[in-house]
Structures are given as structure tokens and as C-alpha cells.
Design a protein around this nucleic acid. Structure first.
Ligand code: SF4
Ligand code: SF4
Lengths: 172, 172
DNA sequence: TGCAATGTGGACTGAATCGGTCCAGATTAC
DNA sequence: GTAATCTGGACCGATTCAGTCCACATTGCA
């Protein structure tokens, strides 16, 4: 479960709720109530979203938050990278944030591959917009088809039950 | 940086090294030395890999680890889910592991969408095999093309610099 | 003017996880 | 029988996560 932090998840839920009232501003309490996100947490997340420039705020009485840009031009990639940091499964390629660059980086043979995988995921996420998440129907728009469809059934030697849902419960 | 745990990363590196000597078994020390992974950690990871059934072990003198199946039939999805648990960015959809099912799940409007996204990533990872990671060249095989290529340039209103690398450094 | 509503910034904490280490066995080759 | 090697588990420090709280600034309205 290479999880996304729960705060990020909250952020996305709140943003979709915010997007349902385009133009209008919503107060933190309203958003929290409609989404069931605990109020203090909602507040915290919205602050973060504000600093990232994804929402605009109106202080004082009758205040509230509103989308900074139309929902159709807010990509999912922007959201998660603003809330969670650069989207990358591995540590390599993000040493921009310094901290601890992976020690093996100099001899690692797989690094190049991960770079491409990360990039692919990032682009896929960038192709989805907030507006796409508004539809209540669980049908995913065609913007993601590239991901799900195996371009060609290449591996004839593919394991019979390798879809990883069969391997659950093995660890933690 | 929705990170994959470092242990998982190690596991993959070790597996590729193990795959370079197909048939032969490699001792933990050898693997650790070649990959620069700290020995105790390598040991730990390999144990996990063993319980997941991805490697086979030979005890005693001249012992070591070997791949349980040919590298061409070991998908990346299997690896990460064995080491890290089910691959899912969100908490919903994995309550199989019980623990804490997301509270909002009953009213969440985005859940359906995430389910598809997770599934897409999972399938993309499942399309890559260990053998694909062996090539030292950073060229990614065509097995991943579906991810990187935008099927059609749909959003004319796409933000000019929304590729998320431009939003780095905003938060931790 | 004063009050109530609302966002802002930051500090704080308890709990969980992660990365890493270590050791007491069991098993096998020679 | 001895050395090499895997096996299972315990263990610990550091970090991060989720969540809460408060003192303050800003605004609308009576
Ligand atoms: S350099 Fe290799 S080991 Fe280090 S984070 Fe990248 S892929 Fe993982
Ligand atoms: S149900 Fe909604 S809020 Fe809960 S984990 Fe799934 S997407 Fe996130």
C-alpha cells in the first residue's frame, strides 16, 4: 500500500467539494460538514492548499475559500505534488529537496527505469483534472485509457494469478 | 513524494542483481556487496522475499538465494505488493487488511475514481517484468508506452506549467 | 464603534512506522 | 565437527503522521 498521506487525500476530497460551487466561496465548516472530514484537519489542509496557490481565501465574516483556477485546468498531479511533495516512488531524482540522496545512486542499475516509471505516472496524473473527479459516475473518462489497456498482450509466460491482489496478506 | 518504502526499493535492486545470475544462487553477502545495500538490511529484505515465495533459499554452506521463477514472469506489481502490501494510493479498496477503513468511505464522491486510477497503475506495473529492469540502457521497453503518451491533446485550457515539477518546494 | 464570524500561522503531542541492527538457533557442505 | 549460511524474531532510535489547539489578524454588519 504505497500510500498517499491521508491529508493529501482529504485535500483532494475538499477540492472536489469546493469545485461543486464554482464562483461561490465555501466556509471551512461547510466543506468539513459535507465531506465528513474532521474540521481541524480540514482547516489545516486548506491552509496548505492556500500557500500552494491552489485556492484563494476571503477573510473575515462571510469569508471562505474558493478555487484559484477553473476546475478544468487543475490537474491531479498539481494537487498531490502541492500537498505531498514531488510525485516519485523512489528517492532518486528528487534530491532537489536535499535531505538524503540515495546512497546507491552511483551504482544503481534500476534507477534509469524508475525515472521513466515515475514520469509516466506523473504524466498520467497530469492528464486528469479536478473536473474529471466531479462526475459521480464511477466511469473514468477516456483521458486515462492509455493506462489500463495493455497495448499488446506481450507476455505469454505471464503468471496465471500475478495481478497482485492474489498476493495480499503476505506482509504487514 | 508518495514514497515507496526504502526496503521495497532495496528488494527490487536485490532482485535484479539476483536475476543477473539466473540458475546460480547468490549469497546474501555477495548481493549486498554488489548492490551496496547494507548487509543486515539486505538480509531482512531477502527473508521477506522468501516468505512471499519470490525467491528460493538454500541453507548451509554454499547456500544462497535464487529466483523462484524466471525473471520474465516476475512482474513489478508482484514485487512491490509482496514487499509493501497492496498497491493503492488511497485507503479505500484495501480494507481487506482491516485496520482502519476510511471513515468517509460512505459519502466519498471520489472513491470510484481512485479505484480506477489505482487499478490502472497496478496494471501498468504488472506489465513490467524483472527482465525489463536488467537492461542497463535507460530506454524503457515499449511495454510502458501506454502511460507516457497522451492519447490525444484534449485539454486546450491546460495550464502552461502544470507538470508538477514546477510546483516543487512548496511543502516539506 | 464593537462584536461575531472567519481565516492564519504555528506549536504541540501521542502514536505509528521506518530504517537499521543484533543475536540465538537450524541447516548444510566439506 | 566445524565453518558457512540462512531463519526467525526481538529490539531501538529517529522520523513522520494525524490530529488538536490557541493567539491573532481581518472583515462584515448592526
Ligand atoms: S538510486 Fe536505485 S536504490 Fe536509490 S532510490 Fe533510485 S532506484 Fe532506489
Ligand atoms: S473513500 Fe474517499 S476519502 Fe476515503 S480513502 Fe477513498 S478516496 Fe480517500
Amino acid at each position: 500500500m504505497l500510500r498517499m498521506s491521508k491529508m493529501t487525500d482529504y485535500g483532494i476530497v475538499l477540492m472536489t467539494e469546493l469545485a461543486r460551487a464554482e464562483g461561490d466561496t465555501r466556509t471551512t465548516r461547510e466543506l468539513a460538514a459535507r465531506t465528513r472530514v474532521p474540521l481541524p484537519s480540514a482547516s489545516k489542509v486548506l491552509k496548505g492548499l492556500l500557500q500552494a496557490g491552489l485556492v484563494v481565501s476571503q477573510r473575515g465574516a462571510n469569508g471562505g475559500y474558493g478555487l484559484a483556477r477553473p476546475a478544468t485546468s487543475l490537474s491531479l498531479a498539481e494537487l498531490v505534488s502541492a500537498l505531498e511533495g514531488p510525485v516519485s516512488l523512489t528517492e532518486c531524482g528528487v534530491h532537489a529537496t536535499s535531505a538524503m540522496p540515495c546512497e546507491l545512486e552511483s551504482v544503481c542499475q534500476v534507477r534509469g527505469h524508475w525515472r521513466l516509471i515515475n514520469q509516466a505516472i506523473q504524466e498520467a496524473l497530469g492528464r486528469l483534472t479536478l473536473a474529471d473527479l466531479l462526475a459521480p459516475a464511477p466511469r473514468m473518462p477516456e483521458r486515462l485509457v492509455g493506462l489500463g489497456v495493455p497495448s499488446r498482450p506481450q507476455h505469454p509466460a505471464a503468471p496465471p494469478n500475478a495481478s497482485s491482489t492474489s498476493v495480499t496478506g503476505v506482509r504487514s
